[in-house]
Each structure stands twice: as structure tokens, then as C-alpha cells.
């Protein structure tokens, strides 16, 4: 017998020896750590390192296009951001967009969710749901582009009806007063289905037995909602609100397509300002500082929600 074949992986003895060698991995103590390794590597490479890089870069002056070396400037980028009226303005636009957007999407989503709750026998239900969910799956750039046409003051359908009914036309995306509400409507159109989906999921989590009991007790719809539905469904709903808040805070694509942040700074959200700093002005240090501030705000949102949820859980 030749020595190389005795050592080869095809050999049964080799496999046995290999198994014996790594037998210790069958011990859950080691296995659980080993299984974590791929996730940890992924997390470190794609999250931790870029984040540290971002934090580091925020203390430097670095304009990509000058080709000049990075210059350490301490907290100057942060000072400039906090002293910039334009960035505060973008932040205030963003908060308006997030609060009004998430609120209206949640209210509308809950209403729609209740309308479709327990409606399995409704004719055309599936078709209606498909239609309702469509906006959510469209590409934001496409949505932005066709709403730009819908809002067009000359040949847009909205102005066509406005002109026919009231004899007026509104330059929705060209007016500083109308632009932000107009993009907010598009965002609501796009993301209400998401909140409706979360509502349906929340309603689905309510045990049937409790609902039947409520029916036997002849509880009013309000009491059913507060005492039966909400205690079970609120976690899913809160998760939906949390996801929408974070997503709305990062909004950029639809608005950029529709208005480019204009007219003036009327629809300039923090996401657009960040894009401009990074990819129009190429001021990478300042853009990194702004990204960190945005990240901290997003984390604050998350913490507030989690805190509220936790508090309610404790009080129950």
C-alpha cells in the first residue's frame, strides 16, 4: 500500500482520525462559539471597521478631489455642523418629515388593516391587497419620477383636476410652501401599505379564544381594541413604527428625484445634505461627522421606542 493513499481524505481511517481530532466541537460550549465566528467576521468587516473608519474620518479635513493628504482638525467638522443654520434647517425638515410621515402612515395603515382584518370571504380581497401593497415594492426612483409627472403644473393629472374643478394650478414641487407636503404625500402613499401589513400581522397575533370571549361578553369595539387587541399586537405595531421612523429618517432617493432638495432648501432632508457633502462637494470629513450625528439621532429614536415598550411591559 502506498503511503500517500493511506493519508488521503478518501481513506476511512483518515475520516475517523479527522472526526476524533475535532470531536471536542460536539461539546456545546465550543460549538456555540464556533458557530458565531462567521457572523462575527461579517459584523466586524462590514459594520465595525467601516464605523470606526467613519468616526476617525470625522476628525479630519479630507476633500476627496483635491488629492491632498488628510489633515487632523479635531472637532472642527462637528463645530461647523452645529453652527450651520442650513444643517439645522435640514434637521428640522427631517423631523417634520419623520413625525408627520410616520404618524399619518401609522394611522392610515391601522385603519386599512382593520378594514381587511378577518375578511377572508371578501370578494376580490387578494386582488385589492396586491394593489395596496404595490407602492411599497416599487423602486423609489421610479416612484419619484412618475410623481414628478403627476404633480407637473402643466400636464400633470393633479393639476388637470384642480384646474377643472377650482380653476387653479399649483406648482407643487416648485413652491417652497407646497414642496415638502407634496413629497410627504408620496412617502405616505408608498409606505402606508407597510404599516397596514404590520397591523394585519399584529391583529393575527391576537388569540382567537380571547376574541371570541370578547364577543361573548359583547364588548364595544373600543374596549376590544384596548383590552384584547393592543396588548397582543402592540409589539409588532411598535416594531413597524420603529422601522418606519428609521427609514423615514434616512429618506433621500424619492425626494432627490422629485426636487433635488429644492426649491431652495424646502425639501432638504438630512439624508440629502449628507449626500451633497459627500458626493457633490466631496468633503468626506464633514460628511462623516454628519453621518455620525445622524446615526446618533437614529439610535436615540430606537432607544426611546424600546424604553416606551419596556415601560409598558413593566406596567402590565
Amino acid at each position: 500500500m502506498d503511503a500517500s493513499s493511506a493519508m488521503g481524505p478518501g481513506d476511512a481511517g483518515f475520516l475517523t482520525r479527522f472526526r476524533e481530532k475535532f470531536l471536542f466541537l460536539e461539546n456545546p460550549k465550543y460549538l456555540q462559539h464556533l458557530l458565531l465566528v462567521p457572523v462575527l467576521i461579517f459584523f466586524i468587516v462590514w459594520n465595525v471597521i467601516p464605523l470606526l473608519w467613519l468616526v476617525g474620518l470625522s476628525f479630519y479635513k479630507y476633500v476627496l478631489v483635491t488629492g491632498e493628504p488628510l489633515k487632523f482638525i479635531g472637532l472642527t467638522n462637528f463645530k461647523e455642523i452645529f453652527g450651520s443654520f442650513e444643517i439645522w434647517h435640514a434637521l428640522s425638515n427631517t423631523f417634520f418629515f419623520v413625525i408627520i410621515g410616520t404618524l399619518s402612515q401609522t394611522v392610515l395603515g391601522i385603519i386599512l388593516g382593520f378594514l381587511f382584518w378577518d375578511s377572508k370571504d371578501l370578494p376580490g380581497r387578494r386582488f385589492a391587497l396586491t394593489l395596496i401593497f404595490t407602492p411599497m415594492i416599487l423602486a423609489p426612483l421610479a416612484t419619484g419620477s412618475f410623481f414628478k409627472l403627476i404633480y407637473d403644473p402643466v400636464f400633470g393629472i393633479v393639476n388637470y383636476f384642480l384646474k377643472s374643478i377650482a380653476g387653479v394650478t399649483i406648482d407643487f414641487l416648485g413652491s417652497t410652501a407646497w414642496a415638502l407636503p407634496s413629497v410627504l404625500i408620496v412617502d405616505t402613499w408608498m409606505w402606508t401599505p407597510f404599516m397596514m401589513m404590520m397591523t394585519l400581522a399584529a391583529l393575527g397575533s391576537v388569540p382567537k379564544a380571547e376574541l371570541e370571549a370578547a364577543e361573548v361578553e359583547n364588548l364595544s369595539w373600543y374596549r376590544r381594541l384596548v383590552h384584547v387587541v393592543l396588548p397582543h399586537g402592540k409589539f409588532i405595531l411598535m416594531l413597524g413604527i420603529l422601522l418606519r421612523t428609521i427609514d423615514a429618517f434616512k429618506s433621500m432617493d424619492i425626494i432627490f428625484t422629485m426636487t433635488g432638495g429644492g426649491p431652495g432648501n424646502a425639501t432638504e432632508l438630512i439624508g440629502i445634505t449628507l449626500y451633497r457633502q459627500a458626493f457633490n462637494a466631496f468633503t468626506m470629513g464633514k460628511a462623516s461627522a454628519l453621518a455620525i450625528i445622524a446615526l446618533l439621532i437614529a439610535i436615540s429614536f430606537t432607544s426611546i421606542y424600546l424604553y416606551i415598550l419596556q415601560k409598558k411591559e413593566e406596567s402590565m
Binding site: 429644492g262 426649491p263 431652495g264 432648501n265 462637494a281
Partner: peptide, 23 residues
């Protein structure tokens, strides 16, 4: 100028603020 992109971003912002009526 090497700082062209930075300069342009600022001037665009200012001029558009005026023609749109914000300023």
C-alpha cells in the same frame, strides 16, 4: 479650481434659495 465641487455646491444652494423665493 481643485475646490470647484465644494464651491459649486455652496453657490448652487445660495442661488437656488433666491430664485425659489426662499431668500
Amino acid at each position: 479650481h481643485p475646490m470647484y465641487s465644494v464651491m459649486l455646491a455652496k453657490q448652487q444652494e445660495a442661488f437656488h434659495a433666491y430664485i425659489s423665493g426662499q431668500v
